[in-house]
């Protein structure tokens, strides 16, 4: 029975993979992820004053390696979700998928596994391999911090991916969702950069701290960066999270992401008319 159910799922997954990663898309992004990680990680140019590797070192190396490569990863996800799924909806290819003996939510799962899951596997695989080659002394003893940094940094792209998915499903047009996703990404980036000076300026009021906390829910890396930047320093009046506070932010961030995806699944199962 399980075999009979699994086969159509794999068929759709294979079709989605073929569509999302036409030659040489997968290879090109693997190349970009690999080169980007080495070029943007500032590990070599950092002068160390001690051989002891702290979690702060691991965070700095991982986040510097992530910076621009994360944007390349987002381009791949935007392409797969907005352009791939959007054009499938627009051209009516999804109706062909419905002829398979599968529930709608399984079809969406197969599409997402290809668009998001495989992209994420490629991204994390290449990044962690490159970081290991670059700084094994940092990655091995501080592997927990490296994973925490990835968890915090990926929450924000996944949130935008979820919003794009929802918009694509509602509008049934990939182009509009793609534009909206790019705009949303840059707007959130600008807000992240503006919110710290605003919070510092309004440090006497509660709103300054509140704005930072709200931002940390949507982008937990913001809280993690503040933790490593300011924790233990005196004279910092604006909110600095504790370690448990950062983990709570990451958890809350993923709950928000999961709820957006649940809404998308609900929409596909109950509301999407084809």
């Amino acid at each position: 029975m399980a075999n009979r159910k699994g086969r159509p799922f794999l068929e759709i997954f294979a079709l989605a993979l073929k569509e999302d990663f036409r030659f040489p898309t997968f290879e090109l992004f693997a190349f970009l992820f690999c080169v980007g990680t080495f070029v943007f990680a500032n590990f070599g140019s950092t002068m160390f004053y001690s051989t002891s590797v702290t979690s702060n070192t691991a965070y700095n190396v991982t986040s510097s390696a992530l910076s621009t490569v994360l944007f390349i990863f987002m381009i791949l996800v935007f392409k797969n979700i907005a352009y791939g799924l959007g054009s499938d909806l627009e051209k009516g290819i999804v109706q062909t998928y419905l002829s398979y003996p599968l529930k709608r939510r399984s079809i969406l799962s197969a599409k997402l596994l290809s668009a998001l899951g495989v992209s994420l596997m490629l991204f994390l695989g290449v990044q962690i391999l490159s970081l290991y080659i670059l700084a094994p002394d940092v990655v091995i003893p501080q592997f927990g911090t490296v994973l925490l940094t990835y968890a915090a940094s990926l929450c924000y792209p996944l949130l935008i991916a979820g919003i794009i998915l929802l918009v694509t499903l509602i509008l049934r047009r990939g182009g509009s969702a793609l534009v909206l996703g790019i705009v949303l990404y840059f707007v959130l980036e600008i807000i992240q950069n503006l919110i710290t000076p605003i919070a510092t300026a309004t440090q006497l009021s509660e709103s300054g701290t509140l704005s930072l906390q709200i931002m940390s829910l949507f982008s937990p890396n913001f809280a993690l960066a503040r933790y490593y930047q300011f924790y233990g320093q005196t004279g910092i009046h604006v909110w600095v999270p504790t370690a448990s506070g950062v983990i709570a932010c990451i958890g809350a961030g993923y709950v928000i992401v999961a709820s957006i995806f649940v809404v998308a699944y609900f929409y596909v199962s109950r509301r999407l008319s084809l």
Binding site: F21, F23, F26, C34, F38, V39
Partner: peptide, 17 residues
């Protein structure tokens, strides 16, 4: 084949680096 081409792409990226 696709795994192979991806490994080649990573190998070329490492060579470039």
């Amino acid at each position: 084949g696709r795994v192979g081409t991806t490994v080649i792409a990573i190998g070329l990226a490492l060579f470039l680096v």
